[in-house]
Amino acid sequence: MSTDALREPTSATAQDPLELRPPRSEWQMSYRRFWRHKAAVLGLSILIIISIGAIFADVIAIEPEETFYSFDELQTKKWLPPLTDGHLMGTDDIGRDVFSRVVRGSRVSLRVGFFAVGIASIAGTLFGLAAGYFGGWVDQVVSRAIDVMLAFPDLLLAIAILAALGPSLVNAMVALGLAGIPGYARVVRGATLAARELVYVHAARAVGMSDTRIMLRHILPNVLSPILIMMTLGLGGAILAASALGFLGLAADPPTPEWGSELNLSRAYLRTAWWVSTFNGAAIAVTVLSVNMVGDGLREALDPQASSWAR
């Protein structure tokens, strides 16, 4: 890129080699910082592999989705240890290939994670923007609702919502999404309060721009980096929480290859076949770990002041 710049017909200032490179934007600098973060790049690579696995699950899984064996077949098929008969991760109590089910499980977990984070971040951002920008009674209502929702510890709000909706995978997604709203709303509200007083926001208002336009065009870009950081770390949290709900038997029903519920069911024969529990559990841990590493990298890239002292 610098050679191209050199070939360009020169103006007076372009003679100065220091002026050749255009100044980097905020986002470009963040981009460079992210790629320098080794753990984040590693996490991202693992995450891409897992996503490819989820997208092409039907090609990668060696076994068709619903495979059943007769009683006689089962005697030679069940509880095969890893690496026997082409079963990379062995087979479970009814002879199904664990690898195929773990790969299909990635589809379930990623879907739940993305939906939950999607609901939480979009709704939370809108509420936070409105509360921070308009202030007054809007802010009062939103802030008090945030206080109340945050008064429920951790996963409990999601569990309570799930109890009301009735346990199912879709409801778990919705419950985790709703329970995530106050976290985003609070952060966005705070960032909006600061952004509202920026000179160009005042200017935009002075020239008669509509409130919606100001919020989306001028304030949202300012609050985007904390949202992005929260979304990434929240994705790991949502996947973890969804698998916990699955483990508790509140999310997926048995034939669904959900990692948490698989782990729960396979605990019954832990002594005979440790691999079923282990691979399903490891799948959750690796996925969440890689998402969190990306999240950490993103935080350091987008918010270097806040994390510089964290070295």
Binding site: G260, L263, N264, I284
Partner: peptide, 21 residues
Amino acid sequence: VFGVSIPSFFLGVILVMIFSV
């Protein structure tokens, strides 16, 4: 980093596998 990523129920199952089973 590892401690916040590993699901508690999986950790519990591993510990049971090692120290109980």
